[in-house]
Amino acid sequence: MNTEKIPVKVEEKLFQNRYRVDAGRPHISIINQDTCRVECTTQECTVCCPAGCYTTEGNGQVVLITDGCLECGTCRIICSTYRNVDWEYPRGGYGILFKFG
């Protein structure tokens, strides 16, 4: 098909959404950074998170910023080998607030 990839900025998509960010209290965290950096060679979270919350640094470290999180649960379930994601819902009233859903 249109084999060349269409450039997409997920930030532009997320910009349309409404959030109430719980500043300084992320609802998801990586349990053990070394597991991602040393043991996990696939790091699917950095590819499959639909909000692009996970990125890889040059040294293989995975960085998680939850501000744009859509609270779908993908990262929680996709990390099935290491179960290295501590995943809670945001405090009541915080996080994504869908206008249309």
């Binding site: 249109n2 990839k5 997409v8 699917e44 590819v47 499959c48 639909p50 692009g52 993908t74």
Partner: peptide, 14 residues
């Protein structure tokens, strides 16, 4: 998604 390492919003854009 996991096996093929496809990014969901890129899939949607395609």
């Amino acid at each position: 998604f996991k096996q093929q390492k496809i990014t969901p919003y890129m899939l949607l854009e395609q």
